[in-house]
Design a protein around this nucleic acid. Structure first.
Ligand code: MN
Ligand code: MN
Ligand code: ZN
Ligand code: ZN
Lengths: 125, 125
DNA sequence: TGATAAGTAGGAATAATTACTGTTTATGAG
DNA sequence: CTCATAAACAGTAATTATTCCTACTTATCA
C-alpha cells in the first residue's frame, strides 16, 4: 500500500475522532482539506485500510461505521441519540473458554449492544 | 397484525429451516407455494414479524439474514462455506455482570463470530 | 530521471431495501 | 350473514449505500 495525501488525511481523521463516523461523515470532513476528494476515493481507502487492519468497521446498522481504535473493545448504540459508545468487556475470555468445544476456528468476533445510554436516561427523568 | 396466508407461509418457512435465509431465499422458496408472491410482500412481512418479535435479524453481512429461532443464542459465520451456525454462549451472564457499572440500559445484544467451521477445517486437512 | 503500478476524480452501475398505486381480502360491527 | 374498512397484496418505481469504470495524476524505485 502506497502513500497518498488523501489516504493519510482519511486515516488521521478516523484516528482523531471518537464518533465512529460513516463514509459520508469522513467525506464531508476531509473534503474541507481536500475539496476535490471524491466519495469513491473515501470508500476505496476505507476498504484498503480495513484490509491492512489499520481500522475496523461496525456493520450492524444500515450504514457502516468506521473505527480507528483497533484495540479489542465492544460497542453500544443508543436508540435515542444514535451515538455509538465504546465499552470494554471481557468477551475474549469467555470465547476462549467456551468456543473450543464447538470445534470451529474463531478468527474474529463482535459484541454489539443497543439500548438507552446513560445521558439519555438521565435527561428523560 | 392480521392473518394472511402469505404471512403465515413466510413465518412457517423461516421457522422450519436452520439456515438463516435472506429475503431472496425466502421469496424463492415461498414462491413455490404462492407463485404470485412479490419480493416487496416478503420484506413488508419480515419487518412486521420483526416488530412483533416473532423472528430476529442478523445484520452483520452485506445481506440481512433472518432467524425464526428467537431463543437467546449467538451466531458464527464460516468464511469458507458462508454458512451461519448457531452457538450457545453465556453472553447474557457477563453482560448482566459487567454492564451496570457503565450506566447504560442494555435492551438487546448480539455476539457475532467469524472464522472457519468445523467441517471446512476437516476437509482441508 | 523515467517507467509504471497504484491512486484519484467524477460519473455510471449495482443491488438491497423501501415507497407508491391500484386492487384484493381479512375482520368485526351491525 | 353482510358489508364497510383498514390492512395486505402484486407489481413497479424510487432510494441509497456501495462498487465499478475510465481517463488522468502521482508516488515509488530501479
Ligand atoms: Mn470503538
Ligand atoms: Mn440462529
Ligand atoms: Zn443516548
Ligand atoms: Zn465452513
Amino acid at each position: 500500500m502506497r502513500f497518498s495525501s488523501q489516504r493519510e488525511a482519511i486515516l488521521s481523521y478516523i484516528r482523531g475522532v471518537q464518533s465512529h463516523p460513516t463514509a459520508q461523515d469522513i467525506h464531508e470532513s476531509v473534503k474541507k482539506i481536500f475539496p476535490s476528494l471524491s466519495l469513491g476515493t473515501v470508500y476505496r481507502n476505507l476498504n484498503q485500510l480495513l484490509e491492512h487492519q489499520l481500522i475496523t468497521a461496525i456493520k450492524q446498522d444500515e450504514i457502516v461505521h468506521y473505527d480507528g481504535n483497533i484495540s479489542d473493545h465492544q460497542h453500544f448504540r443508543c436508540k435515542n441519540c444514535d451515538s455509538i459508545i465504546d465499552l470494554e468487556f471481557p468477551v475474549k475470555d469467555i470465547i476462549l473458554e467456551h468456543v473450543p468445544r464447538f470445534g470451529h476456528e474463531i478468527q474474529a468476533y463482535e459484541l454489539y449492544m443497543t439500548g438507552i445510554c446513560k445521558n439519555c436516561k438521565n435527561e428523560t427523568k
